[in-house]
Write a protein that binds this DNA or RNA. Structure first.
Length: 934
DNA sequence: CTTTGGGAGTCTGTTAATACGAT
DNA sequence: CATCGTATTAACAGACTCCCAAA
């Protein structure tokens, strides 16, 4: 009966906006019977309402102010009014009850398994340590043999392994990360109090695991390797070492963490070697060693993101301590004690958090552990992209996908013409999807409603009593939904929720794949649940039913010799099994909304495969730097070409280069009406004398691009020409499309396409902006970085909707400012009086204040002024960024090496600007030289 | 002083929407 | 040329953190 906890969060409907709509669902019977003021069906009235609303909303920046230069774009104002517009989640009905019960049973063994398998809770590295008894005993000096041992133990030999070996191999679990973080925090604050929870964890961790040794197979070790090592073989070991030596001269102690990493690389490189294979491995494996006191394994892990990340990608960690120790410190194969590690950290400007953690930990445990790490560099099995004839992998093993729980009937009856109606489970499911969307603005969109109705009508069948949507009253279902939501909330407050989460660990095995023997995280292993399609902007298909996906809809791609993933749905089977190593997807199914499209299951961004192509992407855009002058010259010449095709190519390229516009492929009628450069319509660009252009169109995701830019006069004239003799709706670039444009670009530079310009311009902008970073404090430096990031985000037009509470927040700040101002005035007055030897005036309440010396008052005044300045700045930044999304460019456009190098140069801990996900995703960029320029 | 509750900011997962070569 | 097939780019919502003030 409860909505499935495992269901996507997107399915949950927020209730915040429900109030502004009549309490009756659109078209509901209640409205008809209840209010006479509703003339026609509710549907109609609500439609009007909806139209108004949507009109305001869609053009997100309709009220934007005049524009500024290309960097400023305006945003919509009061999005608050349209808060509902924000939600785009699909409503579904799956309830968890059934599912969870089933899971429970199933899970019990799994859970116990987890228990035994304590390693699962630990980071890979630590698990390795604790579980590898052999390696524990052998110190670094025996590293090699230890490694071998681990590897040897890995081959699957028992039946048990058949079942669980995959899971066993995939130790590092995210949930634990969260858990660990939690634990970490706790340990910091209550260093001395080991709460029961921690104890619990400790016990768990400390428990010997019979399965553990198996887990510590080489597969895992590979996971610990840095991407860069796997991928970037070009750098000779020697070179790395020497460069390190150079930069590393003196002591690492003073260097920022990121710089210290360089040293790691060198060490690792020295250790480079290839090990024998385990049953599965195809790739050389990392070796690792370490020694850890058994007790170490019992403690909750404390870690820093950096350390964690590094542990995962750069080194093999043997002790759980490693998680807390920055890579640099771990690296030396020689013994590195925590003590020294702490010292180093403290003196090296490391993130406070890290220091705190270490200190807290030390205080708490008083233990000194050794973190030994060695890492062997793996030779990239694959040659450069393309060289392998498009081959992306050699072996691929994974567990397929996980399905959302089946629909759980709730039995709440909707009303039709005032009477309860019987619905089949499927009919009820769809009805519920619609019902729970009542509090979203989608519920008022005619398109949404009509699309929904036409799908639902089919499901109802021709002889069903429901003939008109207007007579349907979903209120009972909606109310039920609200109650469920409340119940869920209550539940979550209790520590019981934890148990649920633990159950979700059932998904653990789906989270990992073995690619060429290396364990890699899978990105989206969950099949999308059924729901009502929403789409962004005015999507023609909004409201259509997104049908449930079954195994019969899914094609699995897996290595030829790998076991075929078990179909998790009894009685069903996969549509097809493929063994295609020229692609990177693990599975796909046809999109139920648009059957011509597919939904793919890929590896996570942190995977080697993704990392490699990411790196290639940035390398390609870097190459553009060598051609850009040429290209600009070429298109400048083209502005006045007599050949109109050539002229259009020139102008389009100019726009893409200057404004970072997207290519703009043609779109079908059944997609939202949005455009990019090549698909601009005449009405999207207007001439502004003397030679500026005003752009106003909806781009990807129906985000408005509204910008006025001064352009080359020839471009201004050319655009005027292109618009001539065309009507609204006609293509501005009628002689052009993306393939022609890209074909042209390719002639100039191999592999060049329109999108490369976006990456290039974003990265070069960041690089340039960061050059003049001046700031002394860490805060100032980080602010400078954010400022640069902001410029990029604005260039790329990455927007976000204004939070509903933004204006309220600003008001709050304003009033605080007013208070400070009042205080300032008062202090000033008292100061003046004090200087003259007079006592301060009574305060507002008429109370007498004590005398204070002018010095004290002056100090207070200064403090107050500083506070006000800071607040002013904060407010400005906050308002400035309320519509700017910094994340998108960070994830997709800015070469991470620019950021990493900058951090090294300015001694900013990388984790100040990259979160855990980004650190993982960009692990390949971490050892860049500090002087790297894009 | 610690604990707690809540608000604001960040992170993560979700899945839509785009790019672009191949067929 | 349109469609297919694959991969990347994108915003958003809820979960989670962090921080602060009140208890």
């Amino acid at each position: 009966m409860h909505p499935s906890p495992s269901g996507p969060k997107s399915m949950q409907i927020s209730s915040h906006s429900s109030s502004h709509i009549t309490s009756t669902l659109i078209g509901s019977k209640a409205s008809v019977s209840g209010s006479k003021s509703v003339p026609e069906s509710l549907v109609h009235s609500s439609l009007k309402h909806l139209q108004d609303a949507s009109r305001e909303k869609v053009p997100r920046a309709s009220s934007a102010t005049a524009t500024q230069s290309l960097k400023r774009r305006s945003m919509e104002q009061e999005i608050n009014t349209h808060s509902s517009l924000i939600s785009n989640s699909v409503v579904t009905k799956d309830s968890e009850a059934v599912g969870s019960v089933a899971l429970n049973v199933k899970n019990r063994s799994k859970y116990e398994n987890d228990d035994i398998d304590s390693d699962e809770d630990k980071p890979l590295s630590s698990r390795l340590t604790s579980s590898s008894v052999a390696s524990i005993k052998e110190k670094s000096s025996v590293r090699k043999s230890a490694t071998v041992r681990v590897v040897e133990s890995s081959p699957k030999t028992t039946a048990q392994e058949e079942d669980s070996d995959f899971e066993d191999k995939t130790p590092l679990s995210e949930r634990l990360l969260a858990h660990k973080a939690d634990t970490l925090r706790k340990s910091i604050t209550e260093a001395k109090n080991i709460n029961s929870h921690s104890k619990d964890v400790n016990n768990k961790l400390g428990k010997p695991s019979n399965l553990a040794p198996r887990k510590d197979t080489s597969d895992e070790s590979d996971d610990d390797k840095p991407l860069s090592e796997r991928i970037n073989l070009k750098v000779p070991v020697k070179a790395i070492g020497s460069s390190t030596a150079q930069s590393g001269k003196g002591s690492d102690d003073k260097k920022p963490l990121c710089q210290q990493r360089v040293a790691n690389v060198s060490v690792k490189s020295q250790d480079k070697k290839i090990i024998g294979e385990s049953g599965i491995k195809k790739r050389p494996h990392d070796q690792s060693t370490g020694s850890v006191p058994a007790s170490a394994a019992k403690k909750p892990k404390l870690y820093t993101e950096t350390a964690q990340l590094q542990a995962k990608h750069k080194t093999e960690v043997l002790s759980d301590d490693e998680d807390e120790v920055p890579l640099a410190q771990r690296i030396p194969p020689s013994i590195c004690t925590i003590k020294s590690a702490i010292k180093k950290k403290v003196s090296s400007g490391m993130a406070m958090a890290t220091k705190k953690v270490l200190e807290a930990r030390r205080a708490k445990t008083g233990q000194i552990k050794k973190a030994l790490t060695t890492k062997s560099t793996i030779a990239m099995p694959k040659a450069a992209p393309g060289s392998g004839g498009g081959q992306k992998w050699t072996t691929l093993e994974h567990n397929g996908v996980i399905f959302p729980p089946p629909y759980q009937v709730h039995g709440i009856k909707m009303l039709y013409d005032g009477k309860a109606v019987e619905l089949t489970p499927q009919q009820e499911e769809v009805a519920t999807m619609f019902a729970v969307m009542k509090d979203t603005d989608y519920a008022t969109k005619p398109k949404f409603i009509s699309n929904f109705w036409s799908d639902w009508k089919q499901i109802l069948g021709s002889n069903h009593i429901i003939k008109k949507l207007e007579l349907c009253d979903f209120t009972p279902i909606y109310d039920w939904h609200l109650r469920e939501k409340e119940n869920k909330k209550l539940l979550s407050t209790q520590e019981k929720k934890r148990i649920k989460e633990e159950k979700l660990k059932l998904e653990e095995k789906y989270m990992w794949a073995l690619v060429d023997g290396v364990k890699e995280k899978v990105g989206n292993f969950r099949v999308e649940p059924p729901g009502l399609f929403r789409g962004r902007g005015e999507h023609p298909k909004m409201g259509k039913l997104k049908k449930r996906i079954f195994p019969e809809n899914i094609v699995i791609n897996v290595g030829k010799d790998a076991p075929i993933p078990e179909c998790p749905m009894p009685g069903h089977r996969w549509k097809e099994i493929r063994h295609d190593n020229t692609v990177t997807w693990l599975a796909y199914w046809n999109d139920p909304i648009n059957s011509k499209e597919f939904k793919y299951v890929f590896l996570a961004p942190s995977s080697s495969l993704k990392g490699q192509s990411d790196k290639e992407k940035y390398e390609k855009s870097r190459k553009l730097k060598d051609y850009i002058e040429d290209i600009r010259q070429t298109y400048t010449k083209g502005f006045s070409s007599s050949d109109s095709t050539r002229r259009q190519i020139a102008v389009a390229t100019y726009l893409i280069d200057r404004l970072a516009l997207r290519a703009g492929n043609e779109k079908d009628d059944d997609e939202a009406d949005t455009v990019g450069c090549c698909s601009l319509k005449v009405e999207h660009v207007s001439l502004v004398a003397p030679h500026s252009l005003e752009f106003d169109f909806l781009g990807k995701d129906s985000i408005r691009y509204f910008n006025t830019v001064e352009v080359d006069e020839r471009v201004y004239k050319a655009i005027g020409d292109f618009k001539k003799a065309k009507a609204e709706g006609d293509d501005l670039f009628d002689k052009l499309d993306t393939s022609k444009l890209n074909a042209h670009l390719k002639e100039i530079m191999p592999g060049l396409t329109a999108k490369v310009f976006r990456t290039y311009n974003a990265s070069i902008t960041l690089d340039t902006q960061l050059q003049d970073t001046n700031g002394n404090t860490l805060t100032e430096k980080v602010a400078a970085y954010q400022g640069a990031n902001k410029e990029v985000a604005i260039l790329c037009n990455h927007q976000r909707s204004v939070s509903k509470s933004h204006s309220a927040q600003m008001e709050r700040l304003e009033s605080k400012m007013a208070e400070l101002e009042a205080l300032r005035v008062e202090l000033k007055r008292d100061l003046d009086r004090a200087k003259k030897g007079k006592p301060p005036l009574k305060d507002a309440d008429g109370k007498v204040k004590r005398n204070q010396t002018p010095e004290v008052l002056r100090k207070k005044l200064d403090q107050n002024n500083q506070k006000m300045d800071k607040m002013k700045l904060d407010m400005r930044v906050k308002d400035d960024l309320k519509t700017v999304a910094l994340g998108t460019s960070k994830i997709n456009y800015m070469d991470p090496r620019i950021t990493v190098a900058w951090c090294k140069r300015h001694e900013v801990p990388i984790e100040k600007v990259f979160n855990k996900s980004l650190l993982a995703k960009f692990s390949w960029a971490m050892d860049v030289e500090p002087d790297f320029r894009f």
